[in-house]
Structures are given as C-alpha cells and as structure tokens.
Design a protein around this nucleic acid. Structure first.
Ligand SMILES: [Mn+2]
Ligand SMILES: [Mn+2]
Ligand SMILES: [Zn+2]
Ligand SMILES: [Zn+2]
Lengths: 156, 156
DNA sequence: CTCCTTATTGATAATGATTATCATTTGCAT
DNA sequence: ATGCAAATGATAATCATTATCAATAAGGAG
C-alpha cells in the first residue's frame, strides 16, 4: 500500500516528504486520523483513535509525528486553556481558514470564519509592516477571542 | 502601611478589592513586582524577584495570586511556546495595549503597538459580529504572529 | 484594643502532559 | 537481498502547575 513517500496523500505529498524522511505505518495512520476525524484532538485523542486500528502504536510516536507535522506547517497546534495541546490538520484549501472563540468558563470552542476575509486582509498588511520594521519573517498568526458562551452567561 | 484593601494601588483599587478579599503582604509584594519589573515574567521569575524582599513567600502563593489577578483581568497570561506561562500587568492606560511577535526558533518576543489602532478597530467590529452570531460575551482577545527573527533568518 | 471568623499562607506532595532514553525494528536506497 | 540510518515502542524522567492541610493573620464586630 505505501508506494513512495506520501503518495496517497494527494493533498500534501511534497510537504509530507519534506516532513518525513520515511513513510511508516504509524505516520500513515496518524495522518488518516487527522484527515478524517473532527478538529481539536489532543495527542491522547489521536493516540486512542489510532490505537483502534493499530494497537501497537505508542503515544510517544504520536507526539513525535505531531511535532514534525507542526514544524512543517501541515498541522496547527492550539492551546485553548486547559493545559493540553490540540491539533488540527491544515487544509491546503484556503477556504477552511478559521479562528477560534473560546468560553473561559466551560472551555467550549467555536470555529468561525465570518469576518475571516477582513481579518486576513488586515493581517496581511500588518505582517508586511512588521516584517519591514522588525525584520521578522512571519510564518503564521494566532487569533483567538475569549469570553462567555450563551450557556455560561445564564448560569450567573 | 496597608490601610484598606488596595488603597495604595492608585491604578486599580476597586478591581483589586474585587479580586482580593484581604490585602496581604505577599499580594502587595507581587503587585509591586508586576508594576515595576519588565514584562513577560514567568511565575518563577516573579517568585524569585519577590523572594529578594520577602524570602518567606512561597511559590504556591505566587501562582494563586497570579490566577486571581488573571481572572479579574488585572493581569494577562501569555504562552509563547516554551510550555511556561508569562504574565504582565494590564495598565488601565489603553495606550499600552500591544500584541506580540514571537520567533519560533530562539523564542525572542517583540512587543509591537504599530497597527494596533487598526487592529483594535477591526477587533471591535469582529467582536460585535461574533457576539451577535454566536451569543458570546467576549472579554479578551489574543493576537500573536510567529516567524523568524533577523538573527535566526541568517543562521540558516 | 481584643476577639473571632475564615481567607490566606507556606511547605510539601501529587498531578499530568510532554520529553528523553535506549534497545529493537524497519524503510528504502543501493 | 543487504546495510544502515531513521523510526519505533516501552518506559522513565521532567517540570510547570495544582492540591493538600495545618498554621497564620486580615479585618470586621463589639
Ligand atoms: Mn479549529
Ligand atoms: Mn507584552
Ligand atoms: Zn461556556
Ligand atoms: Zn530568533
């Protein structure tokens, strides 16, 4: 089934090759889970999901793979307030770009992509300005809003 | 020296009273350090700074106090990438509002307030839209840019 | 000022997500 | 098919943060 590195990952074959020198069963399994499951999975969520198909894959490998994918920009790592990183695959399709709205009481996370165009437009301009002034080569940005969700506003 | 709760903290006396039911030496010391020291201190940085004046104050108290101040919005907690929270006092003076630019290689953190007006203007509009659509009562936002600083661009 | 309640503290143990270690396995270029 | 470096899995170690709990002290009532 493998073939050459990343060949079955039509979305990112080249970048997967850059991230991985070798394509292995564990890496394929982890990529599959990331591609098919819901967003915002913790390392352990991913480990458990992978574990159903390949019980021998270890948690350390999950962490190592996520680290590589994050470095390479194929995966985004988020921190929503419980000291536990969450991961989601980055679609090459730019229409999936979104930011997060986080309830500071119950931890609920809402993805929004309303206003995203406006936001990205401003971000692009700010990035250009910051690059010039501070000589930073900017790779990514993080925008999150924090507040109380509807439920948590009611409960005092 | 104490007087009544928060009396000597001209900046936020009312909010400090809301955060603290009792004003104590450790809390005064921690507030003093936050007000006078540089930004982006870790809990341990603050502990060590406080320790020079009051060696008996414990690290747990520093964490507890920072938690309270953060809840009350008097202090902002940031996560810059080394799994270690950083804290900075929130000035009531809005002119100190700033965002952060973080080097993903060496960890350097740059504060910028260029473009801040434009950013805050957009943020305000986005907040209004999100409040309406998702029924969130938004309290704070987080905007960070990640990339390579000048130094780290050179070193390969 | 003294007393009393209870918020707060300091010392310390526990937690838990993440990282390091290392012997073994395996992808894959030759 | 072979050899070697990359990758793995089991497990121990790390370390920032949180929980525990007996002792202390802030500050309101009298
Ligand atoms: Mn998301
Ligand atoms: Mn800052
Ligand atoms: Zn909520
Ligand atoms: Zn750098």
């Amino acid at each position: 089934m493998p073939g050459r590195c990343g060949s079955q990952y039509a979305d990112h074959p080249r970048r997967i090759c850059a991230a991985f020198r070798r394509m292995t069963i564990p890496r394929q399994a982890i990529l599959d889970i990331l591609n098919t499951s819901k967003h915002h999975m913790s390392a352990e969520d991913i480990y458990l999901a992978v574990h159903q198909f390949y019980p021998q894959i270890g948690l350390a490998t999950v962490y190592r793979t996520l680290e590589l994918l994050t470095q390479e920009g194929l995966v985004s790592r988020f921190e929503f307030g419980d000291h536990k990183a969450r991961y989601e695959i980055v679609r090459s399709d730019q229409t999936h770009h979104h930011h997060h709205l986080i309830c500071i009481k119950c931890g609920r996370v809402v993805e929004y992509s309303d206003f995203i165009d406006e936001e990205l437009d401003l971000i692009k301009r700010v990035e250009a300005g910051l690059t010039e002034k501070y000589n930073f080569n900017i790779k990514t940005h993080l925008i999150q809003f924090y507040g109380l969700c509807g439920q948590c506003q009611i409960q005092q």
